[in-house]
Design a protein around this nucleic acid. Structure first.
Length: 173
DNA sequence: GCCAACGTTGGC
DNA sequence: GCCAACGTTGGC
């Protein structure tokens, strides 16, 4: 890995969260900035969490279901797919009676806070940019809470949103 | 609050 | 396995 953010520069994702529920600042406030991405109950997203998302992948943190939805920061994956135990907990909002320790059904990953964008990118910002206009999150009716992002989109979000290029250790660290 | 887009469920 | 009904997501 070797770069200061620990992002491998190979695969990138966008993850949605309702900030009233769990915000990017909430992630920053967790011990070591790490939290498990639990509660995903959609099979397509589950397959990504279980099979595709790896340690070192970059994550765009997107705030949804608010007046001005936006990409607000970047994070990285620090643990790949493992069973989402909230599905086994009858007191959890995400309890699933069909899940069991032998057949967990649902999976989660752990993500770690890396850096906020100096300018969060709203949907209008994304739509106005020739590269970002192609992002899946803009597609009408798209409800996938975990979605792939291309390397070009990732780079562009960091450029336009104002995060120092995390792949270059230019900070004297 | 409306509504479009989807995913899920259940009858057949 | 089809498909209608229903529920949820999420932008607007």
């Amino acid at each position: 890995m070797g770069d200061p953010t620990g992002i491998s520069q190979e695969r990138f994702w966008l993850m949605k969260s309702e900030p009233d529920c769990f915000s990017f600042d909430d992630l920053a406030a967790r011990p070591d900035g790490i939290e498990s991405w639990d509660g995903v109950r959609n099979f397509k997203a589950r397959n990504l969490l279980r099979d595709e998302i790896r340690v070192g992948d970059g994550v765009l943190f997107y705030h949804s279901s608010i007046a001005e939805p936006a990409i607000v920061g970047i994070a990285r994956v620090v643990r790949s797919g493992y069973p989402d135990h909230t599905a086994l907990d009858p007191r959890s909002d995400h309890f699933d009676p069909k899940a069991s320790p032998e057949h967990p059904i649902w999976y989660m990953v752990d993500v770690q806070h890396v850096a906020p964008l100096t300018h969060p990118l709203t949907r209008d910002d994304l739509r106005r940019h020739p590269v970002l206009a192609g992002m899946e999150v803009l597609r009408k009716g798209n409800r996938l809470s975990v979605q792939p992002v291309t390397a070009e989109q990732w780079r562009t979000v960091l450029e336009v949103g104002g995060v120092r290029d995390p792949f270059v250790n230019d900070s004297g660290e």
